[in-house]
Design a protein around this nucleic acid. Structure first.
Lengths: 228, 228
DNA sequence: ATTGACGTACGTACACCGTACGTGCAAGCT
DNA sequence: AGCTTGCACGTACGGTGTACGTACGTCAAT
């Protein structure tokens, strides 16, 4: 068949495809080798070990983010675009997403998003230190959201009627949970994410450390309101 | 030695201790059995399988959150307290935290925090639907923060002078990252978390869907400012 | 043209994993 | 007494990551 010379890229690609097809638990060196029609140990000529392979997967997925950053656009729109770009790859590689967020990435692939985000926050009026902190909060939100979104979706198939709902909550002990159980069970991930992004944008907009603002006295309010 | 009758609780406790001592990768049924001075298969009399054991670990850790919710306090303080309660257990069981956040918990242990949080958000002036959405955003932030905090701390020991910093970033390609590299490398987790909590609180405070506000015209501002 | 070094593919082997299955023992009930 | 039940345990099977040795290209220097 394909006498293609077997490269790290091919191995990583096979791993990604395997993960998306059968889940992260299905990944094993033997499985990937079989997928490529190749001996197990041949993989080790291109990849030092399994962990490095998975890092390669994370990096490859991350590097597929499409950043069409327009420095001239309103900073709120830039934030929206960048947040959605992250979510888009999570949708394209749902089973790989957990892998990406579980391992911190120290590579150029993970750096470009950071660069773009920092530039956006600077344009929103933050100085360096605050831009970094705001960025970290935003990343935390995005990562947490995606993790929930993919974590709740391990098996697309069943309507999930397992031992969760039968234990209908005791209204006396958990009145709020009981009253809102319909909302808590439902999952409009798209809507939840957009809601969160708008909330974060608003939080950034009213942050007291911003220099030039929406000039709606938001920063003045923030200053007066927030001081401990 | 201890002729203690071996129970699910003892097994879970041993697993937690093992994880904290040697990391999550060290957990194996054989290892835990050895730790307890017991045959491997004896464990299966109390735990159906390894995955259930890990769920037990997650639930046990989660149930140790200390919630001293004061319904009379200012809602902002209640939010602060609850957020810190989460972070506190993450500090007490750093290596278990990844496990807790990676698996969605459907158990009473995970429900009490939700109940408290919803009550707090209701007291902050949100109706049911918005309370749920705001809560999800907040949880996403907390989970993302803790994940970063523990993910960046797999091995406490080395000062981490691996292949990350030597590849000093190209100032031309990544000007912002280069300029702020000192800030990006440092990690004041405590400060970052508190910064994020305050940012989230401010975001909640100015949210247009709140009924009664801090009466600082924050909601009025929010309404005027945010409408697309 | 011969030799040697080198990189790649591969098979074998080892230690470890989760767990299905069968066996024996001790306690409690009839 | 007999019987049942439940727990501790050993063995065994199929799977895992990967260290190590081997065989076979290709290319450089002789």
């Amino acid at each position: 068949m394909s006498t293609e010379p077997l490269s790290r890229a091919r191995i990583v690609a096979a791993a990604i495809e395997l993960i998306e097809r059968e889940g992260a638990d299905a990944v094993s060196m033997r499985r990937i080798a079989a997928e490529l029609g190749v001996g197990v140990m041949s993989l080790y000529n291109h990849v030092p070990n399994k962990d490095a392979l998975l890092s390669g997967v994370a990096e490859a997925v991350l590097s597929e983010i499409e950043f069409t950053d327009d420095p001239g656009a309103d900073w709120t729109d830039r934030v929206r675009v960048q947040a959605r770009a992250f979510r888009q790859i999570a949708h394209h590689y749902p089973r790989c997403t957990m892998l990406v967020v579980s391992r911190q990435v120290h590579s150029p692939a993970g750096m470009l998003p950071v660069e773009r985000a920092l530039a956006t926050l600077r344009s929103a009026g933050f100085d360096g230190a605050d831009a970094v902190r705001v960025l970290r909060v935003f990343i935390a939100f995005v990562v947490g959201s995606l993790l929930r979104e993919v974590g709740v979706t391990p098996a697309f198939a069943p309507p999930r009627e397992d031992a969760a709902d039968p234990g209908v909550v005791d209204p006396a002990l958990f009145p709020e949970v009981h009253a809102l159980s319909a909302l808590l069970d439902g999952c409009d991930h798209e809507g939840d994410f957009e809601f969160g992004v708008e909330l974060m944008i608003r939080a950034i907009a009213v942050h007291p450390a911003r220099r030039e603002g929406t000039r709606t006295a938001a920063d003045a309010l923030g200053k007066a309101d927030v001081d401990t």
